[in-house]
Amino acid sequence: MKITISEVLKGCTPGRMQSAGYMQVIPLISDMVDDRFGPFGKLLTSTSHYGTLCFENRSDSPTIFPLGAGVLTKQHAQNHASGRAKLMRANSEDSIDDAACIQESQGGTIGSGEHTMTILPYSIRNDAFEIKDQKEFGKLWPAIQEFNRSVGVRTMAHLEYYLEEFEKTLDEFIGQFEIVPNQVGAIIILNGQVAGIERAPNYEFWKELWKPLIRECYGSASLAFNKTGVKVSPPLGRMPVNDHKVKDLDSLEEQLNRADDYEWATVKDLIANFITQPFKVKQEEKDSTSGLCVETLTDGQFTGQIVRDSSFIMYASLMPDKNARFNTAANFSI
């Protein structure tokens, strides 16, 4: 199978774009859902050693531990996260031994249970993915310290400082975006650039992923952008209604549609630039019984991981490839 963004988004149609502040979310809607997959929040997670995340799936359905997911616990134990997606077969136990600690000065291993899940802040998730194969439990500490510094919280490798400090801001942030019926994913645009492409196997999985992904991961990117103090009016990618051409209600409606269409067309152009470029694929793991596998995609404009079987991609988490040509291009503007 030749993997392209177009293949990743196969079976999806874009929903109406949602826009607030500097972020836009294009919902991906699909009737082609994969109901085989159950919720990941029901996974029992623990750590056996520093850097080893253990999972137990007691459900009769397989599930996916999402890329960049972290486990937060109130136990006296070190919170952990992983830069890779993990496929969990039904009624199985497994582990990741290259996970990372996200709580520098906290000791102790996590006892097995249903713990709160987060998705790492945007910049940290990208770093975590890049060094996902390194077996060094302190590997994310520099990235967390840098991130905490950039958003103005205590410069220590404690992710919870960010989550606690910005709890209210992040709640407000996610309140601005809404899940639409049959949504299974989203294209996220930040300040006129595609910041991520996310796809889940089904609506229920997406509903579970929505809050940690939009609130904690992409919310951090919006937060960091706002901290830069760069003011753009109107925000890039946002087209105001042209009041000069409004004479009556019909023309107001026309201009309103034009503004919406223009925004949509420019976003479509932006996405069209890269949807057919093929990725270089590296298989990370494969379940021989179901044929499901986890693969890492690189060398396109984007990089990330997918979960697929022989015919269909049911999970994807892609972020811009730092080295790609597209990202060196100028920001989108009208």
């Binding site: 826009s19 607030a20 409004v246 107001l252």
Partner: peptide, 20 residues
Amino acid sequence: YENAPEGRFNEVLKIAKDKL
């Protein structure tokens, strides 16, 4: 809470009031 896009309602309201 408006998001399609945020602030569009206010834009349209102002045009309806001031211009029309």
